[in-house]
Design a protein around this nucleic acid. Structure first.
Length: 427
DNA sequence: TCTGGGGTCCTAGGACCC
DNA sequence: TCTGGGGTCCTAGGACCC
Protein backbone atom coordinates (compact mmCIF):
# COMPACT_ATOMS: atom_id res chain seq x y z
CA UNK A 1 0.00 0.00 0.00
CA UNK A 2 1.25 3.44 -0.92
CA UNK A 3 1.82 5.89 1.88
CA UNK A 4 -0.66 8.76 2.04
CA UNK A 5 0.31 12.13 0.57
CA UNK A 6 -2.01 15.12 0.80
CA UNK A 7 -2.00 18.51 -0.85
CA UNK A 8 -3.91 21.44 0.59
CA UNK A 9 -4.86 24.11 -1.92
CA UNK A 10 -5.72 27.28 -0.03
CA UNK A 11 -6.83 30.53 -1.69
CA UNK A 12 -5.03 33.64 -0.45
CA UNK A 13 -7.32 36.29 1.09
CA UNK A 14 -10.08 34.55 -0.86
CA UNK A 15 -12.96 37.05 -0.77
CA UNK A 16 -10.62 39.97 -1.38
CA UNK A 17 -8.95 38.16 -4.29
CA UNK A 18 -12.37 37.54 -5.87
CA UNK A 19 -13.16 41.25 -5.71
CA UNK A 20 -9.80 42.16 -7.21
CA UNK A 21 -10.30 39.96 -10.27
CA UNK A 22 -12.95 42.41 -11.46
CA UNK A 23 -11.30 45.46 -9.94
CA UNK A 24 -7.63 45.22 -10.96
CA UNK A 25 -7.21 48.84 -9.84
CA UNK A 26 -7.34 47.52 -6.25
CA UNK A 27 -4.33 45.24 -6.67
CA UNK A 28 -2.00 46.95 -4.18
CA UNK A 29 -4.65 48.81 -2.24
CA UNK A 30 -5.95 47.87 1.22
CA UNK A 31 -9.23 45.97 0.75
CA UNK A 32 -11.61 44.43 3.33
CA UNK A 33 -14.78 42.36 2.92
CA UNK A 34 -17.48 42.69 5.58
CA UNK A 35 -20.01 40.19 6.90
CA UNK A 36 -23.79 40.44 6.77
CA UNK A 37 -25.04 43.88 7.88
CA UNK A 38 -21.49 45.07 7.22
CA UNK A 39 -20.79 44.14 10.83
CA UNK A 40 -17.49 42.28 10.94
CA UNK A 41 -14.36 42.07 8.82
CA UNK A 42 -14.32 38.60 7.26
CA UNK A 43 -11.52 38.97 4.71
CA UNK A 44 -8.49 41.23 4.60
CA UNK A 45 -5.90 42.00 1.97
CA UNK A 46 -2.27 41.83 3.11
CA UNK A 47 -2.24 45.62 3.37
CA UNK A 48 -5.19 45.52 5.80
CA UNK A 49 -3.58 42.73 7.84
CA UNK A 50 -0.44 44.86 8.10
CA UNK A 51 -2.52 47.70 9.58
CA UNK A 52 -3.33 45.44 12.52
CA UNK A 53 -7.02 44.85 11.81
CA UNK A 54 -7.77 41.36 13.13
CA UNK A 55 -10.06 38.73 11.61
CA UNK A 56 -13.73 39.16 12.61
CA UNK A 57 -13.07 42.67 13.91
CA UNK A 58 -16.27 44.71 14.37
CA UNK A 59 -16.11 47.28 11.58
CA UNK A 60 -17.40 50.20 13.66
CA UNK A 61 -14.50 49.90 16.12
CA UNK A 62 -11.97 50.38 13.35
CA UNK A 63 -13.75 53.11 11.43
CA UNK A 64 -10.95 55.59 12.02
CA UNK A 65 -8.27 53.30 10.62
CA UNK A 66 -10.54 52.49 7.68
CA UNK A 67 -10.90 56.16 6.90
CA UNK A 68 -7.33 57.20 7.55
CA UNK A 69 -5.89 54.56 5.22
CA UNK A 70 -8.70 54.70 2.64
CA UNK A 71 -9.41 51.00 3.04
CA UNK A 72 -11.81 49.87 0.31
CA UNK A 73 -14.77 48.02 1.84
CA UNK A 74 -17.12 45.50 0.26
CA UNK A 75 -20.26 43.82 1.60
CA UNK A 76 -19.83 40.07 1.20
CA UNK A 77 -20.85 38.91 -2.28
CA UNK A 78 -21.27 35.22 -1.50
CA UNK A 79 -22.78 34.43 -4.88
CA UNK A 80 -19.60 35.60 -6.61
CA UNK A 81 -17.29 33.83 -4.16
CA UNK A 82 -19.25 30.58 -4.42
CA UNK A 83 -19.02 30.68 -8.19
CA UNK A 84 -15.27 31.31 -8.18
CA UNK A 85 -14.86 28.52 -5.64
CA UNK A 86 -16.65 26.07 -7.95
CA UNK A 87 -14.33 27.00 -10.81
CA UNK A 88 -11.31 26.03 -8.74
CA UNK A 89 -12.95 22.79 -7.65
CA UNK A 90 -13.63 21.90 -11.29
CA UNK A 91 -10.00 22.52 -12.16
CA UNK A 92 -8.74 20.41 -9.26
CA UNK A 93 -11.11 17.59 -10.15
CA UNK A 94 -9.36 17.26 -13.49
CA UNK A 95 -6.15 16.50 -11.56
CA UNK A 96 -7.72 13.82 -9.39
CA UNK A 97 -11.23 12.81 -8.35
CA UNK A 98 -9.83 12.17 -4.87
CA UNK A 99 -10.72 15.65 -3.62
CA UNK A 100 -12.25 16.91 -0.38
CA UNK A 101 -13.74 20.39 -0.62
CA UNK A 102 -13.02 21.43 2.94
CA UNK A 103 -14.38 24.97 2.81
CA UNK A 104 -15.21 27.66 0.28
CA UNK A 105 -11.50 28.45 -0.15
CA UNK A 106 -9.68 25.21 0.73
CA UNK A 107 -9.51 21.74 -0.78
CA UNK A 108 -7.48 18.66 0.09
CA UNK A 109 -6.26 16.35 -2.67
CA UNK A 110 -5.08 12.79 -2.13
CA UNK A 111 -1.89 12.51 -4.21
CA UNK A 112 -0.89 9.00 -3.19
CA UNK A 113 -2.20 7.43 -6.41
CA UNK A 114 -0.49 9.97 -8.68
CA UNK A 115 2.98 9.53 -10.10
CA UNK A 116 4.75 12.68 -8.94
CA UNK A 117 8.54 12.83 -8.73
CA UNK A 118 9.01 16.39 -7.53
CA UNK A 119 6.20 17.64 -5.30
CA UNK A 120 7.41 21.23 -5.23
CA UNK A 121 7.50 21.42 -9.03
CA UNK A 122 4.05 19.84 -9.15
CA UNK A 123 2.76 22.45 -6.68
CA UNK A 124 4.27 25.30 -8.69
CA UNK A 125 2.57 24.06 -11.85
CA UNK A 126 -0.85 23.71 -10.18
CA UNK A 127 -0.53 27.14 -8.61
CA UNK A 128 0.36 28.65 -11.96
CA UNK A 129 -2.51 26.97 -13.73
CA UNK A 130 -5.13 28.08 -11.15
CA UNK A 131 -3.84 31.63 -11.41
CA UNK A 132 -4.03 31.55 -15.20
CA UNK A 133 -7.52 30.03 -15.42
CA UNK A 134 -9.26 31.82 -12.55
CA UNK A 135 -7.09 34.80 -11.64
CA UNK A 136 -6.93 33.61 -8.03
CA UNK A 137 -3.62 33.26 -6.13
CA UNK A 138 -3.37 30.12 -3.99
CA UNK A 139 -0.92 28.55 -1.56
CA UNK A 140 -0.19 24.84 -1.68
CA UNK A 141 1.11 22.60 1.10
CA UNK A 142 2.08 18.98 0.49
CA UNK A 143 2.73 16.45 3.27
CA UNK A 144 2.01 12.91 4.52
CA UNK A 145 -0.82 14.15 6.80
CA UNK A 146 -3.53 16.78 6.47
CA UNK A 147 -2.31 18.63 9.57
CA UNK A 148 1.18 18.94 8.09
CA UNK A 149 -0.20 19.89 4.67
CA UNK A 150 -2.18 22.65 6.33
CA UNK A 151 0.90 23.88 8.16
CA UNK A 152 2.92 23.72 4.95
CA UNK A 153 0.45 25.81 2.92
CA UNK A 154 0.48 28.42 5.67
CA UNK A 155 4.31 28.55 5.57
CA UNK A 156 4.18 28.72 1.80
CA UNK A 157 1.87 31.71 1.99
CA UNK A 158 3.81 33.65 4.63
CA UNK A 159 7.41 32.98 3.56
CA UNK A 160 7.71 34.91 0.35
CA UNK A 161 10.87 33.04 -0.70
CA UNK A 162 8.82 29.84 -1.00
CA UNK A 163 6.62 31.33 -3.71
CA UNK A 164 3.39 29.92 -2.29
CA UNK A 165 4.37 26.24 -2.33
CA UNK A 166 5.95 24.07 0.37
CA UNK A 167 6.37 20.30 0.39
CA UNK A 168 7.16 18.64 3.70
CA UNK A 169 7.48 15.20 2.09
CA UNK A 170 10.93 13.90 3.10
CA UNK A 171 11.93 17.48 3.82
CA UNK A 172 15.17 17.58 5.87
CA UNK A 173 14.12 20.96 7.25
CA UNK A 174 10.86 19.68 8.73
CA UNK A 175 11.93 20.27 12.35
CA UNK A 176 13.16 23.73 11.48
CA UNK A 177 9.78 24.60 9.99
CA UNK A 178 7.90 23.12 12.96
CA UNK A 179 10.02 25.06 15.43
CA UNK A 180 9.09 28.34 13.75
CA UNK A 181 5.32 27.77 13.94
CA UNK A 182 3.65 29.06 17.14
CA UNK A 183 1.64 26.35 18.81
CA UNK A 184 -1.68 28.17 18.38
CA UNK A 185 -1.13 28.31 14.61
CA UNK A 186 -1.42 24.53 14.46
CA UNK A 187 -4.71 23.29 12.98
CA UNK A 188 -6.85 22.22 15.93
CA UNK A 189 -5.28 24.42 18.60
CA UNK A 190 -7.64 27.24 19.44
CA UNK A 191 -8.01 29.95 22.07
CA UNK A 192 -8.79 27.50 24.87
CA UNK A 193 -5.96 25.01 24.39
CA UNK A 194 -3.33 27.63 23.60
CA UNK A 195 -2.85 28.97 27.17
CA UNK A 196 -3.00 25.42 28.54
CA UNK A 197 -0.19 24.29 26.25
CA UNK A 198 1.87 27.44 26.83
CA UNK A 199 1.63 26.82 30.58
CA UNK A 200 3.22 23.42 29.92
CA UNK A 201 6.07 25.12 28.08
CA UNK A 202 4.77 23.93 24.72
CA UNK A 203 5.21 26.98 22.52
CA UNK A 204 5.87 25.68 19.02
CA UNK A 205 4.58 23.01 16.67
CA UNK A 206 7.85 21.16 17.25
CA UNK A 207 7.24 21.04 21.03
CA UNK A 208 3.79 19.66 20.32
CA UNK A 209 5.16 17.06 17.92
CA UNK A 210 7.58 15.82 20.60
CA UNK A 211 4.81 15.23 23.15
CA UNK A 212 4.29 11.64 24.30
CA UNK A 213 0.97 10.26 22.97
CA UNK A 214 -0.45 9.57 26.41
CA UNK A 215 0.39 13.04 27.63
CA UNK A 216 -1.17 14.53 24.50
CA UNK A 217 -4.38 12.67 25.21
CA UNK A 218 -4.39 13.82 28.84
CA UNK A 219 -4.04 17.44 27.78
CA UNK A 220 -6.23 17.54 24.70
CA UNK A 221 -8.38 14.41 24.46
CA UNK A 222 -8.36 11.86 21.67
CA UNK A 223 -8.26 14.45 18.90
CA UNK A 224 -5.15 15.95 20.44
CA UNK A 225 -3.42 12.59 20.49
CA UNK A 226 -4.23 12.17 16.79
CA UNK A 227 -3.07 15.71 16.08
CA UNK A 228 0.35 14.96 17.58
CA UNK A 229 0.64 11.80 15.48
CA UNK A 230 -0.27 13.84 12.39
CA UNK A 231 2.52 16.31 13.14
CA UNK A 232 4.88 13.33 13.09
CA UNK A 233 3.71 12.40 9.62
CA UNK A 234 1.32 9.65 10.73
CA UNK A 235 -1.98 10.08 8.91
CA UNK A 236 -5.00 9.92 11.26
CA UNK A 237 -7.44 12.14 9.38
CA UNK A 238 -8.20 10.67 5.98
CA UNK A 239 -9.82 12.34 3.01
CA UNK A 240 -13.51 12.91 3.72
CA UNK A 241 -15.22 12.25 0.41
CA UNK A 242 -18.69 12.37 1.97
CA UNK A 243 -18.06 15.95 3.04
CA UNK A 244 -20.72 17.16 0.61
CA UNK A 245 -23.56 15.56 2.59
CA UNK A 246 -24.32 17.84 5.52
CA UNK A 247 -25.33 16.33 8.87
CA UNK A 248 -27.18 19.44 9.92
CA UNK A 249 -28.27 22.61 8.15
CA UNK A 250 -28.71 26.02 9.69
CA UNK A 251 -29.92 29.31 8.27
CA UNK A 252 -29.81 32.37 10.48
CA UNK A 253 -29.43 36.12 10.18
CA UNK A 254 -29.02 39.17 12.30
CA UNK A 255 -31.93 41.38 11.22
CA UNK A 256 -31.38 44.63 9.35
CA UNK A 257 -33.10 46.26 12.31
CA UNK A 258 -34.38 44.92 15.66
CA UNK A 259 -38.08 44.10 15.72
CA UNK A 260 -40.94 43.03 17.97
CA UNK A 261 -43.31 42.44 15.06
CA UNK A 262 -44.57 38.89 14.82
CA UNK A 263 -44.99 39.16 11.03
CA UNK A 264 -41.42 40.27 10.49
CA UNK A 265 -39.99 37.36 12.44
CA UNK A 266 -42.36 34.93 10.73
CA UNK A 267 -41.27 36.15 7.31
CA UNK A 268 -37.63 35.69 8.31
CA UNK A 269 -38.23 32.18 9.66
CA UNK A 270 -40.19 31.24 6.53
CA UNK A 271 -37.33 32.44 4.39
CA UNK A 272 -34.75 30.49 6.45
CA UNK A 273 -36.90 27.35 6.31
CA UNK A 274 -37.14 27.73 2.53
CA UNK A 275 -33.40 27.90 1.88
CA UNK A 276 -32.61 25.24 4.49
CA UNK A 277 -35.17 22.85 2.97
CA UNK A 278 -33.78 23.46 -0.51
CA UNK A 279 -30.29 22.62 0.68
CA UNK A 280 -31.67 19.49 2.33
CA UNK A 281 -33.38 18.32 -0.87
CA UNK A 282 -30.27 19.01 -2.90
CA UNK A 283 -28.34 16.66 -0.62
CA UNK A 284 -31.10 14.09 -1.20
CA UNK A 285 -31.95 13.78 2.48
CA UNK A 286 -34.93 14.11 4.82
CA UNK A 287 -34.91 15.65 8.30
CA UNK A 288 -36.26 14.07 11.45
CA UNK A 289 -35.81 17.23 13.48
CA UNK A 290 -36.33 20.92 12.90
CA UNK A 291 -35.88 23.80 15.28
CA UNK A 292 -35.82 27.56 15.66
CA UNK A 293 -34.01 29.99 17.89
CA UNK A 294 -34.50 33.67 18.40
CA UNK A 295 -32.21 36.09 20.23
CA UNK A 296 -32.17 39.58 21.60
CA UNK A 297 -28.93 41.51 21.07
CA UNK A 298 -26.15 39.57 22.77
CA UNK A 299 -24.07 42.72 23.18
CA UNK A 300 -26.75 44.40 25.28
CA UNK A 301 -27.57 43.60 28.90
CA UNK A 302 -30.48 41.25 29.42
CA UNK A 303 -29.51 39.09 26.46
CA UNK A 304 -31.91 36.18 26.01
CA UNK A 305 -32.35 33.29 23.63
CA UNK A 306 -35.40 31.13 23.09
CA UNK A 307 -35.37 27.86 21.21
CA UNK A 308 -37.88 25.19 20.30
CA UNK A 309 -37.71 22.06 18.23
CA UNK A 310 -40.01 19.51 16.71
CA UNK A 311 -39.41 15.83 15.96
CA UNK A 312 -40.95 14.20 12.91
CA UNK A 313 -42.30 10.67 12.99
CA UNK A 314 -42.23 10.89 9.22
CA UNK A 315 -39.05 12.66 8.06
CA UNK A 316 -39.57 15.54 5.67
CA UNK A 317 -37.96 17.97 3.25
CA UNK A 318 -41.21 19.76 2.44
CA UNK A 319 -40.86 23.53 2.50
CA UNK A 320 -44.55 24.14 3.19
CA UNK A 321 -44.62 21.80 6.14
CA UNK A 322 -41.41 23.19 7.58
CA UNK A 323 -42.62 26.78 7.25
CA UNK A 324 -45.88 26.11 9.07
CA UNK A 325 -44.02 24.19 11.78
CA UNK A 326 -41.33 26.79 12.46
CA UNK A 327 -43.96 29.53 12.56
CA UNK A 328 -45.93 27.45 15.07
CA UNK A 329 -42.80 26.97 17.19
CA UNK A 330 -42.23 30.70 17.19
CA UNK A 331 -45.77 31.36 18.42
CA UNK A 332 -44.89 29.34 21.55
CA UNK A 333 -42.22 31.84 22.55
CA UNK A 334 -43.33 35.12 21.00
CA UNK A 335 -43.51 38.06 23.38
CA UNK A 336 -44.42 41.47 21.93
CA UNK A 337 -42.39 43.25 24.60
CA UNK A 338 -39.12 41.78 23.31
CA UNK A 339 -36.80 43.37 20.82
CA UNK A 340 -35.63 40.57 18.55
CA UNK A 341 -32.21 40.89 16.95
CA UNK A 342 -31.47 37.60 15.28
CA UNK A 343 -33.23 34.34 14.44
CA UNK A 344 -32.48 31.02 12.84
CA UNK A 345 -33.87 27.73 11.62
CA UNK A 346 -31.99 24.45 11.78
CA UNK A 347 -32.63 20.96 10.43
CA UNK A 348 -30.98 17.83 11.77
CA UNK A 349 -31.07 14.08 12.27
CA UNK A 350 -31.11 13.28 8.56
CA UNK A 351 -31.83 10.12 6.60
CA UNK A 352 -31.46 9.37 2.89
CA UNK A 353 -34.50 10.46 0.88
CA UNK A 354 -34.74 7.18 -1.07
CA UNK A 355 -34.84 5.18 2.14
CA UNK A 356 -38.26 6.43 3.13
CA UNK A 357 -40.04 4.99 0.15
CA UNK A 358 -38.75 1.48 0.60
CA UNK A 359 -38.73 1.27 4.35
CA UNK A 360 -41.37 3.32 6.00
CA UNK A 361 -44.34 2.81 3.77
CA UNK A 362 -46.19 1.18 6.61
CA UNK A 363 -46.05 4.39 8.61
CA UNK A 364 -46.18 7.01 5.92
CA UNK A 365 -49.10 7.77 3.73
CA UNK A 366 -47.40 6.98 0.41
CA UNK A 367 -49.70 9.26 -1.52
CA UNK A 368 -49.03 12.24 0.72
CA UNK A 369 -45.32 11.67 0.53
CA UNK A 370 -45.38 11.35 -3.25
CA UNK A 371 -47.39 14.54 -3.56
CA UNK A 372 -44.90 16.39 -1.42
CA UNK A 373 -41.96 15.09 -3.46
CA UNK A 374 -43.63 16.04 -6.72
CA UNK A 375 -44.55 19.49 -5.47
CA UNK A 376 -41.02 20.21 -4.28
CA UNK A 377 -39.53 18.91 -7.50
CA UNK A 378 -41.77 21.26 -9.46
CA UNK A 379 -40.82 24.24 -7.30
CA UNK A 380 -37.10 23.48 -7.50
CA UNK A 381 -37.22 22.94 -11.25
CA UNK A 382 -39.03 26.21 -11.89
CA UNK A 383 -36.66 28.15 -9.68
CA UNK A 384 -33.63 26.61 -11.28
CA UNK A 385 -34.89 27.38 -14.75
CA UNK A 386 -36.35 30.85 -14.26
CA UNK A 387 -34.35 32.15 -11.32
CA UNK A 388 -34.46 32.08 -7.54
CA UNK A 389 -37.82 32.75 -5.90
CA UNK A 390 -39.75 32.53 -9.16
CA UNK A 391 -42.16 30.41 -7.11
CA UNK A 392 -42.16 30.78 -3.35
CA UNK A 393 -44.41 30.63 -0.31
CA UNK A 394 -46.41 33.74 0.55
CA UNK A 395 -45.24 33.60 4.18
CA UNK A 396 -41.90 34.94 3.01
CA UNK A 397 -43.55 38.09 1.71
CA UNK A 398 -45.11 39.21 5.01
CA UNK A 399 -42.17 41.57 5.54
CA UNK A 400 -38.76 42.45 4.19
CA UNK A 401 -37.39 44.65 6.95
CA UNK A 402 -35.57 41.76 8.63
CA UNK A 403 -33.23 41.47 5.65
CA UNK A 404 -29.64 42.36 6.43
CA UNK A 405 -28.04 45.43 4.92
CA UNK A 406 -25.38 45.08 2.28
CA UNK A 407 -25.09 48.52 0.78
CA UNK A 408 -21.64 48.14 -0.66
CA UNK A 409 -21.88 44.79 -2.40
CA UNK A 410 -20.08 44.45 -5.71
CA UNK A 411 -21.95 43.26 -8.83
CA UNK A 412 -22.57 39.53 -9.18
CA UNK A 413 -20.30 39.58 -12.21
CA UNK A 414 -20.35 35.86 -13.00
CA UNK A 415 -23.86 34.74 -12.05
CA UNK A 416 -26.27 37.52 -12.96
CA UNK A 417 -26.79 38.63 -16.53
CA UNK A 418 -27.75 42.16 -15.49
CA UNK A 419 -24.50 42.56 -13.60
CA UNK A 420 -21.92 41.33 -16.08
CA UNK A 421 -18.67 43.28 -16.17
CA UNK A 422 -18.70 46.01 -18.81
CA UNK A 423 -15.87 46.75 -21.15
CA UNK A 424 -15.26 50.20 -22.52
CA UNK A 425 -13.49 50.32 -25.84
CA UNK A 426 -11.60 53.53 -26.29
CA UNK A 427 -10.88 54.27 -29.97
C1' DT B 1 -26.26 54.25 16.34
C1' DC B 2 -22.80 50.17 14.77
C1' DT B 3 -20.25 43.31 16.95
C1' DG B 4 -21.43 37.27 10.95
C1' DG B 5 -22.94 32.79 9.61
C1' DG B 6 -22.20 28.25 9.06
C1' DG B 7 -20.43 23.64 10.38
C1' DT B 8 -18.07 19.14 12.91
C1' DC B 9 -16.53 16.18 16.61
C1' DC B 10 -15.79 14.89 21.46
C1' DT B 11 -17.05 14.34 26.30
C1' DA B 12 -19.53 14.21 30.55
C1' DG B 13 -23.46 13.08 32.78
C1' DG B 14 -28.27 11.54 33.15
C1' DA B 15 -31.84 8.11 31.98
C1' DC B 16 -32.75 3.65 31.53
C1' DC B 17 -32.05 -1.28 31.38
C1' DC B 18 -30.53 -5.83 33.03
C1' DT C 1 -27.12 4.73 58.47
C1' DC C 2 -26.24 1.26 54.78
C1' DT C 3 -28.26 1.07 49.48
C1' DG C 4 -23.98 -2.81 42.70
C1' DG C 5 -22.04 -2.59 38.44
C1' DG C 6 -21.97 -2.22 33.82
C1' DG C 7 -23.75 -1.16 29.20
C1' DT C 8 -26.15 1.89 25.86
C1' DC C 9 -28.42 5.81 24.28
C1' DC C 10 -29.28 10.60 24.31
C1' DT C 11 -28.41 15.44 25.13
C1' DA C 12 -26.07 19.64 26.35
C1' DG C 13 -22.18 21.99 26.17
C1' DG C 14 -17.31 22.64 25.03
C1' DA C 15 -13.92 23.33 21.59
C1' DC C 16 -12.50 23.89 17.21
C1' DC C 17 -12.72 25.09 12.19
C1' DC C 18 -13.48 28.51 8.08
Amino acid sequence: MKRPIFALIDCNNFFVSCERIFRPDLEDKPVAVLSSNDGCVVARSNEVKALGIPMAAPAFKYREIFDRHSIVKFSANLELYGNMSRRITELLTTITPRIEVYSVDESFLDLSQLDIRDYTAWGDAVRESILRWTGLPVSIGIAPSKTLAKLASDRGKKQLSLGGVLSLVDNPQLDQHLSEVPVDNVWGIGWRLNPKLRAEGLNSALHLAQLRPQRAQQLMGIRGRQLVAELNGVCCFGLDLEHQKPKSIMRSRTFGEDTNQVGVVEAALASFATTAAFRLRRSNQLARRAGIFIDTNKHKSGFRRWSRETIYQVPTADTGQLISDVVALFSEVYNPRMSYHRAGVWLGDFMPADYLQTDLLGVVSPAAHDHSQARMLAVDTLNERFGKRTVHYAAEDLAQTWQPRHHIRSPRYTTNVAELPQVKIVP
